[in-house]
Write a protein that binds this DNA or RNA. Structure first.
Lengths: 197, 197
DNA sequence: GACATTACTGGACCGGCGGTCCAGTTGTCG
DNA sequence: CGACAACTGGACCGCCGGTCCAGTAATGTC
C-alpha cells in the first residue's frame, strides 16, 4: 500500500520523532495553534527538516492521520466480519461507525487536524480542492454499504453527512470529555432509522 | 434584541461597508484566506477601523453571520407555522432544516466562516470554548423539537450531529455547486427515519 | 455659530508564523 | 575509503492578525 521509499537511517528516525511529537502536542493543543516551529523543537530537529520531510503543515497532519487510520483501513478491506467482507451491509456499516468513533475518540483532536480537510492554500478557485485520502476512503466505504441496502437513497450525500460529524467542534469537544458512546449511539440510531433490521 | 448602541453616522456607514465587503469577499474566497487588510481595503477604510468596530477576525465573522441569521431567528420564535409555533414538532423540524439549508446555500461559505466555530486563540485549555450564539440558538431549537417527539433519544447529541453537516468542507462544496436540494432531502430522510409520521 | 468633548479613523508598527534556502554534515554504496 | 547524494537546521523572507496613537470630525452646549 505504501511504497517503502528507502530513507536514510537518520531520516527515518527523525520522521518518527516528528510524528510522535506532533501527536503529543495535539493531545494538549488545538491543531490551529500548534506552530511548525513548536513541532520541530519538540521533536528535537530543525524546522527545515520538518518541511523537507512533509512539505507543509497540511502534509504533516495528513501523514499523521494516515498512519493512525491504517489499521482500520486494513480491517475493512481484508479483515474478518463484521468490519470486513462477509456480513450484511447494515451490520458492516454499524461496525464501521463504531470503530470510526472509537478511533477518533482515542486520538483526541486528531481528526480536527483535518481541520478544513484540505490545504487552505490560495486556491485559484474552481478546482474542487483535493480531498484527504482517508476521507475519500471512508466516504467510499460508507456510501457503498448504504447503496447496497438502500439504492433509493442518496448514498453519496448521506455518507458526507455522517462524516461531517467528525468535523464539528462541539462534537469533538464531547468526544474529549468521554462521550464517545453517546455519539456512537446517536449514529446507530440514525442509521437504524434508515436501514431497519 | 439588539441594543441600538448609538453610533456616529460615519461609524454606521463604515460598519455596513465592512460587512458588505466581507460578504462579497466570502463569495469568492474561503474564509481562511481572506485577510483583514483585504477586508479593510475592499471596504475603503483603514485596518484600525475594522478592528475598532469588530475587535477581531472572529468578531467580524460573528457579526456577519448573526445579521444573516436574524430573519430565520425571528421566523422560528415569533413567526407563523410551520417554522413558528403551532405545528407539530416533526413538521417544525423539517421546515427548520429546509430553511437552514437554504440560508447556508444562499450565503455561500458564510457558515464556513464559523470555521472552528470559535475563536482559536491560545486557549488556556479546559475552558469549554465559547460557542457561537447562532449555533447555540439552532442547537437549542433542534434538540427541543426532537425531545418533544422522541424523549427517548439523545436529542442533544443528535442536534449536534445534524448541525455538524454545516461545518463539512465537502458538503459546503456541494452547496456551492447547487446541490442544496440533495442535502435537504438527505436530512429529511434522516429525520423521517427517527420521527416517522 | 463657536467651542469643548469625545468617539472615530487609519496607517505605522510589532511579534510571530508558514515556508524557503543553502551551506555544512553525514549516511550510503561501489 | 572516497565520492556523491541525501539529509539537516537555522537564518531569512513576506505576510498577517492585532495594537497604538496622533489626527480628525461628529455631537452637545451655550
Amino acid at each position: 500500500m505504501t511504497e517503502p521509499e528507502r530513507l536514510r537511517a537518520d531520516a527515518v528516525r527523525n520522521r518518527a520523532a516528528i510524528l510522535r511529537a506532533t501527536e503529543d502536542l495535539l493531545t494538549r493543543h488545538h491543531p490551529q495553534q500548534i506552530s511548525m516551529e513548536q513541532v520541530a523543537a519538540a521533536a528535537g530537529v530543525g524546522k527545515g527538516t520538518v518541511f523537507h520531510r512533509f512539505g507543509s503543515r497540511y502534509g504533516l497532519m495528513r501523514a499523521l492521520i494516515q498512519e493512525r487510520a491504517q489499521d482500520l483501513e486494513i480491517a475493512i478491506t481484508t479483515g474478518p466480519p463484521p468490519l470486513g467482507q462477509g456480513a450484511p451491509p447494515r451490520t458492516r456499516l454499524l461496525a464501521f461507525l463504531t470503530a470510526m468513533v472509537e478511533l477518533v475518540a482515542r486520538n483526541k483532536g486528531l481528526l480536527a487536524a483535518l481541520g478544513p480537510a484540505a490545504p487552505v492554500t490560495a486556491a485559484p478557485e474552481q478546482e474542487p480542492r483535493e480531498t484527504h485520502p482517508v476521507y475519500r476512503s471512508w466516504h467510499g466505504h460508507i456510501s457503498q454499504l448504504v447503496h447496497q441496502q438502500r439504492p433509493d437513497l442518496d448514498a453519496d450525500m448521506l455518507a458526507h453527512v455522517l462524516l461531517a460529524t467528525l468535523h464539528s467542534e462541539p462534537i469533538l469537544n464531547a468526544l474529549e470529555r468521554g462521550y464517545a458512546n453517546r455519539l456512537d449511539r446517536t449514529l446507530r440510531d440514525l442509521v437504524t432509522g434508515l436501514m431497519p433490521q
